[in-house]
């Protein structure tokens, strides 16, 4: 009653801003490392000696447009988009149920179910998936036993998803990405759905809206900031999964790691690292224009 629901406690961004106001050093350190990254990306590597030339150039960015590098960017973008969408579709009903209906022990079970996988080692989970998806793994065995191998074979014959098994197919990479990022989508979604007061849904019904109208006009827009927040996480695909499950084709994370770590091509690594930042900025700008943050 004291705090009207239309003025919900402000979000993480506000609190973060607060931190920066109180401790400007934090911001400086963050901006500083970002600036260093940006600066590096405007250097280039000397083709002849492999030494980093500390002169301003756009050459390194031009290198991003080499076919194999464009491949990596495009591959990452497509994977991130597909994973994000799949996560959103899967997460919504779970988050909605948890926010609206789960009470008491069910709520506890929900949190446990969502968070538990986060406590176990990331690597262990990915290895486990490798075993599940392997040619002679649990999934293949179950498919053989139930006569549903044709489904797996069907997936593996789709152009772009080929592999000798799910574990070596990009589809396997996709599955594991979805598994790993799902909690990061569910939690912010659930948080934003929970912030929608029941009275708002009642108001909608009271004014004549059907359930689906309420969903489209009230629930979805109000949950959208959570979806966007979740998708920011899922967009930052890590480099470990595709090293273990998939067809070894590179994503941006691994490319950065390799360019920096093995090749010593720090400018190109930096330029690669700038790409997801740019994608995120464009994405957030588009989302803002589409009104995704109106509910904040």
């Amino acid at each position: 009653m004291t705090a009207p629901a239309i003025l919900p406690a402000r979000g993480v961004s506000d609190r973060l801003t607060g931190v920066f106001w109180r401790r400007p050093n934090v911001l400086l350190a963050l901006l500083g490392s970002l600036a260093a990254l940006l600066l590096q990306s405007f250097y280039s590597i000397d083709e002849f000696s492999g030494v980093v030339k500390q002169e301003f150039t756009l050459k390194t960015y031009a290198e991003l447009f080499r076919p194999q590098n464009l491949d990596i960017i495009l591959r990452t973008l497509v994977m991130a988009a597909v994973v994000t969408m799949a996560c959103a579709v899967l997460a919504f009903p779970i988050a909605y149920f948890a926010a609206r209906y789960a009470r008491g022990p069910w709520k506890a079970a929900f949190y446990l179910g969502v968070m538990l996988p986060l406590w176990s080692s990331y690597l262990v989970k990915v290895y486990a998936w490798k075993l599940i998806l392997a040619k002679e793994g649990i999934l293949g065995w179950a498919a053989d036993g139930t006569g549903t191998s044709f489904i797996i074979n069907g997936i593996l014959s789709v152009p772009g998803l080929e592999g000798s098994s799910l574990s070596t197919s990009p589809f396997g990479t996709f599955l594991v990405f979805v598994y790993v990022w799902l909690p990061y989508m569910i939690l912010p979604m659930q948080a934003s759905l929970e912030r929608v007061p029941t009275s708002m849904l009642e108001a909608s019904a009271d004014l004549g809206a059907t359930r689906s109208q309420t969903f489209r006009s009230v629930i979805l827009p109000l949950a959208l900031p959570g979806v966007i927040a979740g998708s920011i996480f899922t967009f930052s695909l890590t480099h470990i999964i595709p090293q273990i499950v998939g067809d070894s084709a590179r994503f941006i994370g691994l490319a950065v790691y390799q360019q920096q770590g093995t090749a010593g091509n720090i400018p190109l690594a930096a330029a690669f690292a700038v790409v997801p930042i740019l994608i995120m900025l464009v994405y957030l700008a588009l989302a803002k224009r589409a009104g995704a943050f109106d509910a904040l």
Binding site: R66, Q68, I72
Partner: peptide, 13 residues
């Protein structure tokens, strides 16, 4: 070597 790195990435891709 640095070209080995980026070209091998291309081949695997």
């Amino acid at each position: 070597y640095y070209r080995w790195v980026s070209d091998y990435i291309g081949v695997i891709g």
